[in-house]
């Protein structure tokens, strides 16, 4: 399902004729791959493997990977372990607050298929139904070496310009929103306005709007930014 939809993403033709621009793009991509700030959302047991990966034993900073605190600063959302439905709301909120290009790495089998929580009523089984996941590192739990080699794979894909599933969230927002609504109810809304964001950054795709976004619009609290203004704008009379 996901793979078929991924193939539908229109491939942006690289501009030809200006070699300087291409070199510049390559440089930016290279820098992106060599500087990854992680936000780790440690919801389960997998967190235990991250300290050795970061500290003196394996030292991820060699690869330019360092932990960050707030989603605004981060490039990678590292989700280790099972995601309960309550937590998933926060994970989605956090994901939407990150600046693109952003990557999601799911660690441990729980994020792949629910793992040992397969039968739990309170756990979201497949992470990639709710947000595009760039990389799964399976295992229960994967060792730090596995984490690092996974991240290296992600770095290669970023360098080659293949890791662009973050665009999928904008282009197929309706699909992800639908799954989220199924889980959290019809009045589900995050503070980030993905649709206007997609319009603003020209990331609209065929699947951005659909029946689920229409449902969202019916009850959505307005999220326009506070624009600076001198004059008076009267509120429309509330019936």
């Amino acid at each position: 399902m996901v793979m078929s939809r991924l193939q539908k993403i229109p491939v942006v033709e690289e501009k030809k004729g200006n070699p300087l621009a291409r070199v510049f793009d390559d440089l930016v991509r290279f820098c992106r791959s060599r500087s990854l700030f992680i936000l780790h959302y440690c919801t389960g047991c997998g967190a235990i493997e991250l300290p050795p990966a970061m500290t003196s034993r394996f030292d991820m900073e060699r690869l330019g990977i360092q932990p960050m605190v707030s989603p605004r600063q981060a490039d990678i959302l590292l989700i280790t372990g099972y995601v309960s439905i309550k937590t998933l709301k926060r994970v989605i909120l956090t994901y939407e607050q990150m600046g693109s290009p952003k990557y999601v790495v799911g660690i441990c089998s729980c994020t792949v298929n629910g793992g040992m929580y397969w039968q739990s009523y309170a756990t979201a089984k497949k992470l990639d139904e709710y947000m595009p996941v760039d990389l799964y590192i399976a295992g229960c739990m994967p060792r730090p070496e596995a984490v690092i080699s996974g991240l290296q794979k992600l770095m290669d894909r970023i360098k080659n310009g293949e890791a662009d599933s973050w665009q999928d969230y904008y282009r197929n927002y309706d699909y992800y929103l639908g799954n989220q609504q199924k889980l959290f109810g019809e009045d589900w809304q995050t503070p980030t306005d993905i649709i206007t964001e997609a319009k603003h950054y020209e990331l609209m795709g065929e699947g951005t709007l659909g029946q689920h976004t229409r449902l969202l619009e019916q009850h959505q609290q307005p999220l326009e930014a506070l624009e600076m203004r001198l004059g008076h704008k009267l509120k429309e009379p509330v019936e």
């Binding site: 607050q97 206007t196 930014a225």
Partner: peptide, 16 residues
């Protein structure tokens, strides 16, 4: 480019 966001679209440790 950057996009102006609503003041409630703000980091609060995952809180809505």
């Amino acid at each position: 480019p950057s996009k102006r966001v609503h003041q409630l679209d703000n980091y609060a440790g995952g809180h809505f």
